Amino acid sequence: MRHRTARRLRGTRLRLAVSGAVAGAALFAGSLPALTGSAVAAEATADEEFRRGPDPTLAAIQAQEGPFDYATVTVPDRPTFDGGTIYYPTDTSQGTFGGIAISPGYTADQSSIAWYGRTLASHGFVVFTINTESVYDQPDSRGRQLLDALDYLTGTSSVRARVDPGRLAVAGHSMGGGGALRASFLHPGLQASVPLTPYHTWKSWSNTTVPTMIFGSENDTVTPVGQHAERFYASLGAPERAYLELNNGTHTTPVSFDTTIAQYTVAWLKLYVDNDTRYERFLCPAPPAGGPIEEYRSTNCAA
């Protein structure tokens, strides 16, 4: 399986990410200084596994809630994003957890992505679903806000001691998905990115090396996959990337709980944020088209 070889190369990628993050800070000054330190921490732990929770089953990762109890913290308006909600596991016996910031889409607020907070926290992540400064913010702004949210999560939040600053990821829906792509471009030290039916006017992401899983929807008339999700996937420079197209899905399918999205999002984040190899079997071999999946492509499962 190609994935194991790719993981051995990630230490090199993360070493390069340190210099990339510094360059990004110089170019896009603002939200990156704390995350630059995270890239250094990520290098040190690139090959270490951070197993959290019991051995996974397919039924468990398709469920709305996993094995961890969780609580929430409400975050008020911040200078660079409009607050949000942090969902975090209450278990303190297993060490720190990976952190994930998630952006809603155009005209939406965090309520549209709340199920990710509940589901992912119950699988052992600290999840920050944010409100953007304006519901009309464009993807590049949402990307910067995602990075600012991670800075807050790891540096200032009341649950910062529960978060490993070397294991951070981003996700988002629609323009928030475009924001996740942008955040990954700005900060290559991130461990994973999950854009969901993403929108962005920039179509080439060849300089983006963060492990990325993109979800598209077959019947998406807002961001048709041929103009957005498929093109983004094909252009990615990340050696570890996947594309899943939801059969009969629409642009708004990701705003409600979906077993297929849950399964592959949990598995992707567990594998790349926690380096937990127990989840490889839920990603490879690649699933055939049929049922909820219209199409699946992945570099992970290549021979």
Results as ranks from 00 to 15, higher is better:
Y116K: 07
L244D: 03
L32K: 06
G178W: 10
G20W: 11
R15S: 05
L186N: 09
C301Y: 00
N247S: 12
A262E: 05
D82W: 08
Y87C: 04
A29I: 14
T156C: 01
Y272D: 13
F215G: 06
A39D: 08
R182E: 15
K270F: 05
A60N: 02
Y296I: 09
A60Q: 15
D47A: 15
R118G: 02
L283S: 07
A17H: 00
A23D: 11
A302K: 05
A101M: 01
L35Q: 03
L269T: 03
V75I: 15
T260M: 05
F125W: 06
W202S: 12
A108L: 13
P188Q: 09
T208A: 11
S112P: 00
A44N: 08
W205G: 14
G189M: 10
A289Q: 06
P67Q: 03
G124N: 10
T223I: 00
L9Y: 10
V222I: 15
L190E: 07
E245F: 01
F282D: 06
D137M: 02
L190K: 05
T45C: 08
V255L: 12
Q191G: 13
F257L: 02
S193E: 04
G179N: 11
V159G: 03
D91Q: 02
A21E: 14
P188W: 03
S141R: 15
L271D: 08
A34N: 10
Y199R: 11
F128N: 01
V135D: 10
E295H: 14
L186Q: 13
Y264D: 04
S19E: 12
I113D: 07
V163Q: 07
P287W: 06
A238G: 07
V255K: 01
A17V: 09
T209S: 14
I100Q: 04
D91F: 02
S256N: 14
S157F: 09
A121L: 08
F68I: 03
P198A: 15
L16W: 05
A29R: 13
T80M: 00
E49W: 09
E49V: 15
R2L: 11
A46P: 00
V210N: 04
R162K: 15
T156K: 13
G189L: 09
K270L: 04
N219R: 12
P239M: 11
T156D: 15
D140A: 14
Y88E: 03
A6Y: 10
G66F: 05
D137Q: 09
P165Q: 02
G237W: 04
Y243D: 02
V225C: 00
V170Y: 10
P195F: 00
A242N: 08
Y152T: 05
G53H: 04
A21Q: 08
L246T: 01
G178V: 07
S112Y: 13
G95E: 04
R15M: 13
A25L: 13
C284F: 00
R231H: 07
S93A: 13
N247R: 15
D151S: 15
P285E: 06
T252G: 13
Y106I: 07
S93D: 12
R281T: 14
N247M: 12
G105H: 01
L283I: 10
N248P: 02
V159P: 11
L153C: 10
S141M: 10
L269N: 06
S184Q: 08
P76H: 14
T107E: 13
